[in-house]
């Protein structure tokens, strides 16, 4: 059974639901504090999946995720790259997305197969303050691009009522440094999930809710799939009929994708070694 690492730190507060989601999808889970990992980065090598949970790390001082991203750029960047090279799926919702964007892990090297720079690259995308300058918690309708290379959202067959995810953030407005970059990411299948065009909650460019790196492993997104692993979390589950709730909820499906990928990786790894 693959083992997932959940990284916590001061102000992280969505770690429990993330643990449960990994567990429900069939992974073992261990939570380790960022302070511990910064002293002993090699511990990351033990894991098959990584989760950077949501929350308000360091109170989101300066900007959301800024301080934890800076600390990780300094102390953990190379270990993360090693993990990506090993084929480890990395899940980064909300505060996690803000961190991986500022660490430069997404969108990552522009050409598929191009290797990662030695030190953390300058961020090219950001999650700015919501257009309405206010925190918002609600469910949004989402769409999954058919051509995405994101291993978390690939090949999901989901009915319309189930194509929703909860959001809860004040700084989630996706901005890429240039239109060229945005176009490149679109053509390269790096858009992992979008808000429905009439349901963009924060003014994000291109209605983008989540992106991945060019390996498809690192999944940064503002919504919280880990809060949608059972039907009674759906915002109007009491109005849905029995048939609609036969399949597994969208969030859990994403975790199943990643855990299956990690299991396959470790099997391949076992074969090679």
């Amino acid at each position: 059974m693959p083992t997932a690492l959940v990284i916590t730190t001061a102000g992280i507060n969505c770690d429990l639901e993330l643990r449960h989601a990994f567990e429900m999808a069939g992974a073992n889970v261990e939570s380790i504090h960022l302070n511990t990992l910064m002293k002993d980065p090699d511990r990351i090598d033990e894991f098959d999946l990584i989760g950077l949970p949501g929350g308000f790390s360091y109170g989101d001082a300066i900007a959301a995720g800024r301080i934890s991203a800076q600390l990780m750029r300094q102390k953990l960047y190379t270990t993360f790259i090693k993990a990506i090279d090993r084929g480890v799926p990395i899940f980064a919702p909300c505060n996690g997305f803000q961190m991986v964007a500022q660490m430069g892990l997404v969108p990552g090297p522009e050409i598929v197969g191009q290797s990662w720079p030695e030190t953390a690259p300058t961020p090219k995308v950001t999650l700015a303050e919501n257009a309405k300058a206010r925190f918002v918690d609600r469910w949004v309708n989402v769409e999954i691009p058919a051509d995405t290379r994101c291993i978390w959202t690939q090949g999901l067959d989901v009915s319309e009522a189930a194509l929703m995810l909860p959001i809860a953030h004040g700084e989630g407005r996706f901005i890429a440094e240039s239109d060229d970059l945005l176009q490149y990411m679109e053509e390269n299948g790096q858009i992992a999930i979008r808000y429905a065009s009439d349901d963009n909650p924060n003014g994000s460019m291109g209605d983008i809710a989540g992106i991945c790196d060019s390996t498809g492993l690192v999944f940064g997104l503002m919504p919280h799939p880990e809060r949608y692993t059972r039907w009674t979390q759906h915002p109007f589950w009491t109005s849905l009929d029995a048939e609609a709730t036969q399949e597994e909820p969208l969030g859990l499906k994403m975790f199943r994708n990643a855990v299956a990928h990690a299991s396959q990786q470790s099997k391949n790894g076992a074969l090679i070694s």
């Binding site: 969505c14 429990l16 639901e17 918002v136 918690d137 809860a168 809060r227």
Partner: peptide
């Protein structure tokens, strides 16, 4: 209500 994260911890059933 929408300014509060009323779903954090993932336990919500009736919002």
């Amino acid at each position: 209500i929408r300014q509060y994260d009323h779903e954090v911890q993932g336990g919500s059933v009736v919002k």
